[in-house]
């Protein structure tokens, strides 16, 4: 009879231990939300270019030749600065990354790109954040993986790290290319 509460406590403790360990290993984020866009195409939009680059519309990412990333960022966002190193490396490896500058100022955006490099093949500006709301973006940076059929397969909220790239992005690229 006393074994039952004991077993429950041990089971609960073990559950918490696994949870905390996975949080520490950054394979589990309790604040991350599943995106309703997964398995669907992004909603209709048409954004102008930013920093002298070409913008894009939903039709431009409807059938990319290779899987690609759409990266939402802003010059005022601190983790975006940290993430730029990773994005440069991924772009250098031949991955197509299209950027959307979220509620950004043109001058600050230019400075940000000059300081941190520009990994983007195309760069659009979502000045009022309406397209971000339609995508379900709830912060920057956010990265969407789009396959060759133009379907969103993965959304990552936060700066892409080595762990995330190794554990999720690389397998996705292998699966969908």
């Amino acid at each position: 009879m006393f074994g039952v509460p004991l077993a429950l406590a041990v089971g609960g403790g073990e559950g918490f231990y696994i949870l905390l360990r996975r949080m520490q290993a950054q394979t589990y984020d309790p604040h991350a939300l599943p995106s309703p866009l997964i398995g669907k195409r992004p909603p209709a939009f048409n954004l102008p270019g930013a920093a002298g680059m070409q913008g894009f519309a939903n039709t431009d990412i409807a059938a990319p030749p290779k899987p690609m990333l759409v990266n939402w960022f802003a010059s005022w966002c601190v983790p975006c600065t940290q993430e730029s190193v990773m994005l440069d490396r991924l772009a250098g490896g031949g991955l197509a990354i299209w950027g959307v500058a979220y509620e950004d100022d043109a001058q600050n955006l230019q400075k940000f790109l000059a300081a941190n490099g520009n990994p983007y093949q195309r760069l659009a500006a979502d000045v009022d954040g309406t397209t971000a709301i339609n995508w379900g973006v709830y912060g920057v940076p956010e990265t969407y993986f789009i396959d060759k059929a133009g379907i969103v397969r993965w959304r990552y909220a936060g700066a892409l790290t080595d762990d995330v790239v190794a554990s999720t992005l690389t397998p996705l690229l292998e699966k969908y290319s």
């Binding site: 939300l33 599943p34 309703p36 709301i133 339609n134 995508w135 379900g136 709830y138």
Partner: peptide, 8 residues
């Protein structure tokens, strides 16, 4: 709202 952000 649910369409954009899920039932969360």
């Amino acid at each position: 709202m649910v369409q954009r952000y899920g039932i969360f």
